[in-house]
């Protein structure tokens, strides 16, 4: 262990454990409440533990929420966005890291600048662009006349997230450290740029690809605002977070909250498992982005 100056760091243990309890308590309350039956939730005095661990709320969540449909939408959107971000970032990152061409510095600076544009600023115009997308949802080729344009399709949840400036930046930073000699050797052997990228560069980007894939996966799985907006006119496009959130506006809150909690446990589990398995890579990604 490093840096053990002084005696037993009891103060450090105290701080970290107290803080740790504050971090875990909400999740514990979420899981416990998901087992609470009628008449058990919303009662004073508060009790953390449920009377029994029955699965009624989970059954309710499945029947009221159409969980399979929400799950399907979440998976389709998350997988499409993640795959697309990985491919486009690896392509653009390679060009910016290893190819010499006019305008490289300008384009790289532009990519950095894209990360400065806050998403809320683009919310309204992007929605209007999706609404008036040419040749979609009954629109003509100027984007007029139709009924909802792209906003009636899952594509609306995928397209605006298919490329990530951060992803390109991360890939470029990683690829720049790949040895040039290797690429030169392939070139002398007659490989073209596509082959070099596909056969030599891509296999070596695995660690950073896992990092980027994980960050994108978790971010997309949890995305809320845009999906809420797009699915407000077409509930069949809801993903897990939106579907679960909208459940409670219909019914009596004291009865629905435990069912909502059950739904949240189900929807959080996949991300939690993915995160715990790959947490080493996630941590590295956050750290990399912090030290640019």
């Amino acid at each position: 262990m490093r840096r053990r100056h002084g005696k037993f760091p009891w103060f450090a243990y105290l701080v970290v454990i107290l803080g740790g309890v504050a971090m875990v308590m909400p999740f514990l309350d979420m899981v416990m409440s998901s087992f609470k039956g009628a008449g058990e939730y919303g009662v004073i005095p508060y009790k953390l533990l449920p009377e029994s661990f029955n699965l009624d709320n989970y059954r309710e969540a499945f029947s009221q929420l159409e969980l399979p449909r929400l799950f399907r939408n979440s998976v389709i959107v998350t997988v499409s966005v993640t795959v697309s971000v990985l491919i486009t970032s690896a392509l653009a990152g390679y060009a910016l890291a290893k190819l010499r061409f006019r305008g490289r510095a300008v384009i790289f600076r532009f990519i950095l600048a894209t990360m400065m544009l806050p998403p809320f600023l683009l919310l309204i115009p992007t929605f209007l662009i999706m609404l008036n997308w040419p040749l979609a949802g009954g629109n003509d080729f100027l984007g007029r006349g139709g009924d909802g344009g792209l906003t009636t399709s899952l594509l609306a949840l995928i397209l605006p997230f298919t490329v990530s400036g951060f992803g390109i930046f991360l890939m470029r930073q990683f690829m720049i450290s790949l040895p040039d000699e290797m690429l030169e050797a392939a070139k002398i052997d007659g490989a073209n740029q596509w082959q070099i990228w596909r056969l030599i560069v891509l296999p070596q980007t695995k660690p950073v690809a896992i990092t980027l894939g994980l960050i994108t996966f978790i971010g997309t799985w949890n995305e809320y605002i845009w999906t809420l907006l797009i699915s407000s006119s077409d509930p069949s496009l809801q993903t897990l977070p939106v579907g679960i959130q909208l459940l409670q506006s219909f019914l009596d809150p004291d009865r629905t909250m435990p069912i909502v909690m059950a739904g949240l446990v189900i929807s959080t589990l996949p991300v939690l498992v993915v995160f715990l398995v790959f947490q080493k890579y996630y941590v590295r990604g956050v750290v990399l982005s912090g030290l640019k």
């Binding site: 875990v24 949890n222 897990l240 909250m257 939690l272």
Partner: peptide
């Protein structure tokens, strides 16, 4: 442990705290 909230959706965080 401290990173768990970053992994959870805002819907989970918001509702759990609303409940608490």
């Amino acid at each position: 442990l401290y990173f768990l909230p970053v992994v959870a959706t805002v819907v989970a965080i918001g509702n759990v705290w609303k409940m608490m």
